Simulated assay, not measured.
Amino acid sequence: METTLRPYRSLLYIPGSKDRALEKARSLPVDAILFDLEDAVMPEAKVGARDTLTAALAEGGFGPRAKIVRVNGLDTEWGRGDVAALEGADIDAILLPKVISAADIDALAALCDVPIWAMMETPLAIFNALEIAAHPRVQGFVAGTNDLAKELNCRTRPDRLPMQMALQTILMAARAHDVIAADGVYNQFKDEAGLEAECEQGRDLGFDGKTLIHPAQLEVANRVFAPSEAEVELARRQIAAYEEVLETGQGVAVVDGKIVENLHVETARKTLAKAEAIAQPALA
């Protein structure tokens, strides 16, 4: 389980095989780096990518950014070797692809002692989302929307209507067990307006942030998934109004014509805490 309010507005995939990309990642304004040994690495380069990535991790310099490694599936010839190579590495979590059930998490948990994130990219994963989220080693979900669309044979639409049941199921399970939930990637990395619309939809659904495929997408994701100035100001006024009523013991708290209850104050405090965490120099 995640025990801090570390922001996950932006989670950028970085190929574990490319020294230049790994070096650049050290200076990017990203909340989490998804070091990729799976889809971003060709089969003939996978073994070498382990050495490249572990050397970069040993060198360090990634600052406060969450360091998450996507390994190959344990049913492939590379998966177990990936996990073994990461033993003792300075990482925050391992991201397991093609998760189907909690049994897949058990298999990885037996091989490592770091938190586990699950790629939710198959129909069975969606149906088993609650049991996967309930696993004590699971810290995060990543919606694998490209693979899921292929499995569903659904159309790609700006409103992602064919994907809504899956996205909302991922979120329901994640929220039921206090698991981080990251939205899937937006493939057209030069389409800033489309990315912003999809980030806004993911934010409004309840995702913590967006997985990204290109550094050019960072500004939009960081901005959309951060509390706005108006939201921060409203949160402060809600807390102040509620605390004043508690102190005087009279009436009910009202802000902008709306009653403020304890649940609103809890949300307001989370908003302020998230804004404060984002304001740290390395993440702002």
Rank of each mutant, 00 (worst) to 15 (best):
L263I: 14
I180D: 03
K274N: 02
D204Y: 04
E247M: 08
N222S: 11
D256W: 02
K190F: 11
V185P: 12
E261L: 14
E247G: 11
A253H: 04
E244Y: 03
D256R: 03
V252W: 07
M172N: 08
E244W: 01
A182M: 15
V224Y: 07
D204N: 15
Q238Y: 01
A174L: 09
G184A: 09
A273T: 02
E198K: 10
Q238W: 02
G249S: 03
G202P: 11
G184P: 06
E231C: 01
A241V: 05
Q238N: 05
D204F: 05
E229I: 00
I259F: 12
L212G: 02
A226H: 07
L272P: 00
N187R: 10
V254Y: 06
A253R: 07
V252E: 13
P215V: 04
G202A: 15
I213Q: 08
A235M: 03
I180G: 01
D191Y: 05
V254L: 04
E266I: 14
K210L: 08
Q168A: 10
T271D: 05
S228T: 15
A176M: 11
E247K: 15
H264A: 01
E231P: 00
E261Y: 03
Q168K: 14
V224S: 08
I259V: 15
I239V: 12
R203N: 15
Q217D: 07
H177C: 08
G257A: 04
Q217H: 06
I180Q: 05
G184F: 04
A181G: 09
E200H: 12
R237A: 13
A230L: 06
E261F: 07
A197H: 13
F189H: 13
I239Y: 01
T211E: 05
A197R: 14
K258N: 10
T211L: 13
A173K: 07
A241M: 05
D256Q: 09
H177E: 08
R175M: 12
P215Y: 06
V220A: 12
E200C: 10
G202N: 11
E233A: 15
D191V: 05
V254W: 03
A197V: 11
K190C: 02
E219W: 08
T271S: 03
L272R: 02
D178Q: 15
F225I: 10
R175V: 10
V254T: 07
G249E: 02
K190W: 13
V265T: 05
R237E: 15
L171D: 13
L195A: 05
K258M: 05
R203Q: 15
I239P: 04
V265W: 09
K210P: 12
D183I: 11
V265M: 09
V224L: 11
E200K: 15
E231L: 02
